[in-house]
Design a protein around this nucleic acid. Sequence first.
DNA 1: TCTGGCCTTTACGCCGGGGTCAAGGTCTAC
DNA 2: GTAGACCTTGACCCCGGCGTAAAGGCCAGA
Lengths: 143, 143
Amino acid sequence: MRIGELAERAGTTTRTLRYYESLGLLPARRTGNGYRSYDEEDLRLLQQIRTLRDFGFELEETRPFVECLRSGHPAGDSCPASLEVYRRKLAELDECIARLGAIRERVGTQLVQAELARAELEAAATAPDGAPEPRCELTPPGP
Amino acid sequence: MRIGELAERAGTTTRTLRYYESLGLLPARRTGNGYRSYDEEDLRLLQQIRTLRDFGFELEETRPFVECLRSGHPAGDSCPASLEVYRRKLAELDECIARLGAIRERVGTQLVQAELARAELEAAATAPDGAPEPRCELTPPGP
DNA sequence: TCTGGCCTTTACGCCGGGGTCAAGGTCTAC
DNA sequence: GTAGACCTTGACCCCGGCGTAAAGGCCAGA
């Protein structure tokens, strides 16, 4: 199988495959004329990479999985190194989710307050009263 | 106030201020010798930018807030355009959190299954039984 | 033989948000 | 007058994961 076919079967591009090869992630054999040559096993490796990438794994993080497969294991995550990557990723995800959740709360609060302030301003514009002096700046987060 | 002082007071660098100026986000007046000159109002604008950036807003997204302040409003989020950015950001955050949560679930499940498979393998290695044939590849997510 | 469709390598671009020189101007203090 | 601390512009570099040429080789069909 040549590079174009592998790319198409994996739903990616030839550029991507050459890039992976340049990283040593998916090396290719060569035919007599210099063309890259792949087999079904390479397709499996590539699918493992693409699947992990879809999950937000960086390419380097997929390396243990690929090497695990290449060393004859039935699945990319049959090896301790892969499990370690899973665990690190879980911790990362948890932290990221928590951080985003906290920000979401703050932004949500800001939005509500700012909307309230605008409503008051409009009410003040309608009724000829004194200015309610709205204050709604984002306060900087801790260090 | 010159650029160095403003940078220090805002906890950032001169390079950053020049960058913001190049974006038209924080233009500076000039003194006779060509030095940039800032006042307290500029400090407020800059603080608004930095605060929003700490919340994960892109620089372009801070523009409505800055322009709102510059047009004389008491707070950067006193204007409809700013509120719109808040709402978009909230939607973004919600989607991002949901996506990460779904991935977290899948990775967690993979980890547990892979750990189970390994435990079975080791048990099989201890007891001379038939192979339990573990399968634990990540399955690709939907389109 | 020519056209078209593969393939090869090399190399630059992009995205955001600046970091980090380099080469020079300006001001203050001693 | 000169050291040192500031300022100026311009330019290249970084991260990851490729996209997108440019310039040329290889092979099949008409």
